[in-house]
């Protein structure tokens, strides 16, 4: 995923000199190709993320296309007010990239983990929120971000869990991508790293449709209504708090439907990581590994075939 991201920004910068890459002194090695090929468009703003976002706003006003890179714990979380006032209020075309979202930095602890960034960003008017699940979705998301006339938050989570798609994809803002077909009675809606987990569970025997949701905001209401026309149960999976993330988005939309649909929200249960360990350890601790998720789905009353 990170290679796809690097390739996308290099390609964008080489074709458009207005594209600038801003980093808060993060992304060691990730930006080597960019620095080599587009050195004049690379700006290390130092360990000062709030200033970086203000600078990005100024550059966007001056006609540039800034891409602001940081760890999701800092961009967007630490700089949320700058994103709101300096960028979103004027609908400036700034792309924010929050890397390492979720529990990627499993050994480093709470300061570097981010399970509330979707909730925070989706409340900002005009901000598109994208959460790709594999390298193909990253490439498509970057294309969508550069085509956008307004601000975009791109959430990058765990990047080495295997591809979801078998080849290049493209999606429009709001579009859902079906990656497995089941009976139609049960639909799994997942985003980011959890799409791969959903696919693994379905491949292991759960009969369900699996949809990747790379565009959390906007999210196409019509597409969800079409799924809900058949589905009796929705299972939403994300490496993010159950408060305010994709599960909340889906629950809010479903609440407006005339036909009742049950929604099982699987995410982080309103708590921090107490201990450190491997990424897989933290997923187990938060009951987001495949086995725990399968148990939670069964407890919800949806059984595997």
């Amino acid at each position: 995923m990170r290679t796809a991201f690097s390739d996308a920004i290099v390609a964008a910068a080489e074709t458009d000199s207005r594209v600038l890459m801003l980093t808060g002194d993060h992304g060691y090695a990730l930006f080597d190709p960019f620095r080599k090929r587009c050195p004049a468009q690379y700006i290390n703003c130092g360990i000062a993320e709030q200033n970086m976002v203000g600078v990005a706003a100024g550059l966007a006003k001056a006609g540039f296309r800034p891409v602001v890179y940081g760890l999701a714990a800092f961009v967007p979380l630490r700089v949320l007010e700058q994103i709101k006032i300096d960028v979103c209020y004027e609908d400036l075309p700034v792309i924010f990239v929050g890397d390492g979202a979720g529990f990627v930095y499993s050994h480093l602890g709470t300061s570097h983990q981010s399970t509330e960034d979707i909730a925070c960003t989706r409340a900002l008017p005009g901000l598109t929120v994208l959460s790709p699940s594999d390298r193909y979705e990253v490439t498509a998301a970057m294309q969508l971000a550069f085509e956008s006339k307004g601000p975009v938050y791109l959430r990058l989570g765990k990047s080495d869990r295997g591809d979801v798609h078998t080849g290049p994809v493209s999606f429009a803002a709001g579009e859902l991508l079906q990656v497995r077909s089941g009976s139609g009675r049960v639909a799994v809606l997942a985003t980011g790293s959890m799409v791969r987990t959903a696919v693994d569970i379905v491949d292991g025997g759960l009969v369900a449709d699996v949809w990747s949701v790379p565009s959390i905001k906007p999210l196409d209401r019509g597409a969800l209504e079409a799924i809900c026309a058949e589905a009796e149960s929705l299972i939403v999976m994300e490496e993010h708090s159950v408060h305010g993330g994709l599960g909340s988005v889906i629950a809010e939309l479903v609440a407006g439907l005339s036909r009742p649909v049950r929604v099982c929200r699987i995410g982080v249960n309103d708590r921090f990581s107490r201990y450190c360990g491997t990424y897989d350890y933290l997923l187990r601790e938060h009951e987001l590994d495949a086995a725990s998720v399968a148990r939670r789905i069964a407890a919800f009353g949806v059984a595997a075939a």
């Binding site: 700006i43 709030q50 200033n51 970086m52 976002v53 203000g54 600078v55 990005a56 706003a57 100024g58 550059l59 966007a60 006003k61 001056a62 006609g63 540039f64 700058q82 300096d86």
Partner: peptide, 10 residues
């Protein structure tokens, strides 16, 4: 001031 710095850099 940060926005101003961005405009000046631009």
């Amino acid at each position: 001031l940060s926005v101003a710095a961005g405009l000046a850099l631009g």
